[in-house]
């Protein structure tokens, strides 16, 4: 474990917590893409499927973190699609998730480390995570704005994989560890946040709200 991966995971936990708090406190999921949250839940379930296959005692933090990610993302989907369904902005959350799931699944079958079920599920989860934020960014471009709290969520969510890139550089240099598929997907994922990062740094940090040119 290195500092980059530690802060990456903390940033990821923060993102999940910020979103949960926003929905729970405001009792509304306006401005939140339910599709992105569904895709993240699918990512966690397919990536941590080993939790279900052979139950390992929860003594180590990694297992606990995996369970937190899965339960928090499923609970977030429950809040969006059931509890606060009335506030779900279905009209603007209109990016076709199939256009992300099918290519990710196809690519996972073509480009993977080992052609076996668990490995393909892991690869699918990595590819899907890289593009899972697109419905959320699409929704913001449709509504033309993002609530400040949602911007903080996106910043934390984007920073998590950006920090992982630093972690991979660190591990390559000191442990000569390379996981090419995760690195390539992680770079793509972080690039998708670039224009948001620019808006966040130039606007939200100064207390302004992100309003996209309609």
């Amino acid at each position: 474990m290195n500092i980059f991966r530690l802060f990456g995971d903390l940033s990821h936990l923060a993102a999940i917590a910020i979103l949960l708090l926003k929905i729970w406190k405001t009792r509304s999921c306006a401005g939140v893409s339910g599709k992105t949250q569904l895709l993240f839940a699918v990512c966690f379930i397919t990536r941590y499927i080993d939790l279900f296959l052979h139950f390992v005692s929860l003594y180590n933090t990694e297992k606990v973190m995996k369970l937190i990610y899965i339960s928090a993302s499923v609970f977030t989907c429950y809040l969006i699609f059931f509890k606060f369904k009335a506030t779900y902005d279905g009209n603007h959350d209109s990016m076709r998730a199939e256009f992300l799931i099918v290519p990710a699944a196809g690519l996972a079958c073509l480009i993977n480390t080992k052609f076996d079920a668990i490995e393909i599920l892991w690869t699918f989860s990595i590819y899907l995570e890289a593009v899972a934020i697109l419905p959320q960014l699409f929704l913001i471009s449709k509504t033309g704005e993002a609530e400040t709290i949602t911007s903080h969520y996106l910043f934390a969510q984007g920073s998590y994989r950006a920090l992982y890139i630093l972690n991979w550089i660190y591990r390559y240099h000191y442990e000569s560890h390379v996981d090419t598929i995760a690195i390539v997907a992680g770079v793509v994922q972080t690039i998708l946040y670039c224009d948001f990062f620019y808006l966040y740094i130039t606007k939200v940090v100064k207390g302004q709200k992100i309003v996209l040119p309609a």
Binding site: D50, E62, K66, Y164, N167, D179, A182
Partner: peptide, 10 residues
């Protein structure tokens, strides 16, 4: 046993 968890990250 079995699972040589190559991917040791979350």
């Amino acid at each position: 046993y079995g699972c040589d968890a190559v991917h040791d990250e979350l």
